[in-house]
């Protein structure tokens, strides 16, 4: 009986055109659509639509007050050829992301790897120590106190005590120091989701493979890491990379809080700040949408490149 219906179904599917079959499948699975609908509608409304809208508006001169006109590429031409601050912001963003992204990624992996062989209790404590700064809200503000610009700041006082400087440095108010310091703070808060994902991934590697590897002549932990551990963690490495990249582009708040807005001589001005400046302070929405679109493309591009690189690991 069951066989007969299965056969009948198969024949029926062959008789239908592709579109008919899709429609039939859609009708049959209406519950699934009902289940995803509430989430997908909100997701689309606050993630997809804003991206699309942003691209469209970037071709207009919209300013929240007047009816927008299409100006086509004018915003982009201004951005790349007439807005020096934007080019500076691009440079700063790329420096930030190119340091914070890879370093935080490597740091997350190395720490996760180092603590992998500790006993579970100690591993849990070490995990908390490294993870805590990334979840503790505005705790990074303490770097402003440590590096405060007067001689009451602990770092200044210590350096003066040691005779390394005579006058207190102004740190976050100094165009030469603000970038490196913000990078250090960003790194300090960067052992987040990818770090946890690596810890779990390392725990999930099959123990038998290590023994088999030993039999096959793997001599030390570095060979073991390269030939066994990394290849079996591919999916985690990919997920971690995406989290690290997203994080590396999202450091604007740290800079705002510690270096002020705008930062001294625009030394730590990033695309994110430029976007905020034009979008939520000057209401030049068309122009800021062009900035957002460029940033969006940079983020997606960075992810594409990294995906390519990671698919080569251990092969």
């Amino acid at each position: 009986m069951a066989q007969k219906t299965a056969k009948a179904k198969a024949v029926a599917r062959k008789d239908m055109s592709y579109v008919q079959w899709i429609l039939k499948e859609m009708r049959r699975n209406w519950v699934a659509y009902a289940m995803i609908a509430p989430y997908v509608i909100i997701f689309a409304l606050f993630t997809i639509v804003p991206v699309v809208l942003s691209v469209v508006i970037s071709f207009t001169d919209f300013n929240m007050l007047q009816w927008p006109n299409f100006v086509w590429l004018e915003n982009y031409i201004t951005l790349f050829f007439a807005d020096d601050t934007f080019l500076l912001a691009c440079k700063n963003t790329l420096i930030f992301a190119a340091i914070v992204g890879p370093v935080s990624y490597l740091l997350s992996f190395l720490v996760a790897w180092f603590i992998n062989e500790l006993s579970p209790k100690i591993r849990a404590i070490v995990t908390l120590i490294f993870y805590a700064p990334s979840i503790s809200g505005q705790v990074y503000m303490i770097w402003g106190t440590l590096f405060s610009a007067d001689s009451y700041g602990w770092v200044n006082a210590t350096l003066m005590e040691l005779g390394m400087i005579n006058e207190p440095e102004t740190w976050f108010r100094d165009a030469d120091w603000v970038m490196p310091l913000c990078i250090v703070v960003a790194l300090w808060t960067s052992l987040g989701t990818s770090f946890l994902s690596f810890i779990a991934g390392l725990q999930g590697v099959n123990r038998d493979m290590y023994e088999a590897g030993a039999v096959d002549g793997i001599k030390n932990r570095w060979q073991e890491l390269w030939y066994i551990t990394l290849p079996s963690m591919g999916p985690q490495l990919m997920f971690g990379a995406i989290m690290a990249i997203t994080g590396a582009f999202g450091f604007g708040a740290v800079v705002n809080a510690l270096a002020g807005f705008p930062s001294v001589d625009y030394a730590a001005h990033t695309i994110m700040h430029h976007l905020e400046d034009y979008g939520s302070q000057r209401y030049e929405v068309g122009y800021s949408s062009a900035i957002a679109t460029v940033l969006f493309l940079i983020m997606i591009g960075a992810n594409m490149i990294v995906k390519k690189l990671i698919s080569k690991v251990g092969s």
Partner: peptide, 11 residues
């Protein structure tokens, strides 16, 4: 997951 939500803040 690949982009930070600041990109979409204004829209």
């Amino acid at each position: 997951l690949m982009f930070h939500s600041t990109v979409t803040a204004i829209t």
